[in-house]
Nucleic acid binder design. Structure first.
Lengths: 148, 148
DNA sequence: TAATAATCGATAATCATTATTTATAGAGTA
DNA sequence: TACTCTATAAATAATGATTATCGATTATTA
């Protein structure tokens, strides 16, 4: 895990390079993405931002996220009608979603998935550009506690 | 690929076992799922059904799909805000989605993904219940033809 | 056949997301 | 500094997939 402050600076500089404006709304959103441990969704980000900026709109959140995704500084984890965002590791990697506590764990370091693109090309002649790999189940914590 | 007629009968019997009713709307939807080559989405199914049943509603399509999914007779391929359905292979398997022609190919037979659940359990202590593995890119056909 | 219970399906609502419009920041000029 | 002009940000309004609700319909049992 990179230092949140460094990550924040990196995203910030990328936006400046691209000629994007750094408004107070955007700065706050960047900070949330860089600092937040988890993988928030748009609704969560909106709620947290509203505490500071009561007038902010959802569209601003979505547009900024789209811009950051376009810039390659944020990864969208496409869950059914509820995308979450990863501002710390903006490259494709598997995710483990707990169906009980809703936590999202990073599942990189899974060897079989490392060169899967090559195998898909060999086996199906299909050229992979982007992937979305999600495993749903129970995280270690929730396995310990019996069903609510 | 199983014989479409057999598949149709299998789904039909499963619904009866569960005490579900077999209305004309439902029968037509089942037939589409069993016979259709591809992986239609709700909108597509709705359009095709409307040709036969002008009064059918989208809700009927969604409800029937939900019931079939619950019964394990249909697999939902959760694409960003546009789920598609697989009535032929209702078990988890990877999909290859062409970003140009939108076709969805089945990507089973990928060896690395066969026992991935075990590795996830070993490596992360995470118990996989369900997976959603999608690779986006160019299908063989679209690679041959230059960009439109 | 009549009463009862369960499911079906249409309308209307919801919610995430996006298109369009409006506001604002900042550059350049006098 | 004051004043345009232009580009981008942010808000409002719209869209579209999905779901909740509830009357209608069908099956079941007596």
């Amino acid at each position: 895990m990179t230092d949140p402050e460094l990550r924040y600076q990196a995203i910030l500089e990328k936006i400046q390079q691209r000629g994007g404006r750094l408004t107070s709304h955007r700065l706050a959103l960047l900070r949330l993405l860089a600092v937040s441990e988890g993988h928030p969704n748009a609704a969560r980000l909106y709620e947290e931002l509203r505490a500071q900026f009561p007038t902010i709109s959802r569209a601003t959140v979505y547009k900024t996220l789209a811009m950051l995704k376009e810039a390659g500084e944020v990864l969208e984890i496409e869950l059914h009608n509820d995308s979450h965002y990863d501002g710390n590791k903006p490259f494709a990697h598997p995710h483990l979603v707990c169906t009980r506590c809703q936590r999202i764990l990073d599942g990189d370091e899974l060897a079989p998935l490392q060169n899967i693109g090559q195998q898909i090309a060999r086996q199906y002649g299909f050229l992979v550009e982007r992937e979305q790999v999600v495993f749903y189940g129970l995280c270690p914590d929730c396995q310990k506690t019996p069903e609510a």
